[in-house]
Amino acid sequence: MSAPHSKRVCQIIKLKPEAEAEYRNIHASVWPGVLAALERAHIVDYSIHYYRPIQLLIATMKYTGTDYEADMKKVAEDPETQKWWAVTDGMQESFVEGAQGSGKEVPWWTELEEVFRFEGKP
């Protein structure tokens, strides 16, 4: 069940086909500092799915803080996360025109609009 003030986020990006094995491998052991930065930014229930026919990565997460933009800025300023992105960004192709990489002014991942949600009975 979602916290009353949580925000769900869904994002997509293209994975370069030749990077699939490396991307899977690095995500099998995400760096502890990267996970700590996400935790400090109130990100929970984060997962990334892969749809191979069109090389689509689909990330979903819940944000439980009160200032999403400020917390995402803190993640982008985290040195360990910046090193992580220096590795993973090269494996991806952004759908966002003008995107230069994660944590920059123009978003690297494309955030999707939620059009339906079913949470079941409380």
Rank of each mutant, 00 (worst) to 15 (best):
S6Q: 14
Q100I: 15
C10I: 11
A3L: 13
Y23I: 11
Q11F: 02
I26S: 09
G98T: 04
T66I: 07
Y63R: 07
K104I: 00
T66Y: 03
W85E: 08
I43P: 06
P17S: 13
K62L: 13
E97I: 07
A70D: 08
S102D: 01
A37W: 02
M61N: 05
T110V: 04
F118H: 11
T88I: 02
K16Y: 03
A76R: 01
L35Q: 12
E105P: 01
E93I: 10
P32R: 12
D67M: 02
E97Q: 12
A76E: 09
G120A: 08
A19T: 01
E69F: 00
E119W: 00
D78C: 08
V96D: 02
A76W: 08
A19L: 00
L56E: 14
S47P: 03
A76Q: 04
E18P: 05
T66P: 01
A21M: 03
V34N: 04
V30C: 11
G98C: 05
P107I: 04
R8A: 12
A76S: 11
W108I: 13
E105T: 11
T88R: 00
Q92V: 11
I54A: 07
H5F: 10
G90Y: 03
V30F: 02
I13S: 06
M61D: 04
G33L: 05
P53D: 14
D45A: 15
D89W: 00
L15Q: 07
F95W: 06
D89R: 00
Y46C: 11
D89T: 00
E39V: 06
V87F: 06
T66M: 09
K16Q: 13
E77F: 03
K16M: 12
N25T: 06
A21C: 05
Q11G: 07
S94F: 12
M91N: 14
W85V: 00
K83F: 06
Q82F: 09
P17Y: 09
V87H: 02
M91E: 01
Q100A: 08
E20A: 09
K14G: 11
S6V: 04
I58Y: 08
W85A: 07
V87D: 02
W31E: 15
L35N: 11
I12V: 15
K7A: 07
I13A: 11
G101Q: 04
T64I: 15
Y68I: 13
R52D: 07
W108Q: 14
P17M: 08
A59D: 13
Y51T: 14
V106H: 09
Y51H: 14
E114T: 06
M72K: 06
T60G: 14
E80R: 03
A86D: 15
G101D: 10
P4C: 09
R117I: 10
V106N: 02
D89M: 01
L38K: 08
Q100D: 08
A76H: 08
W109F: 10
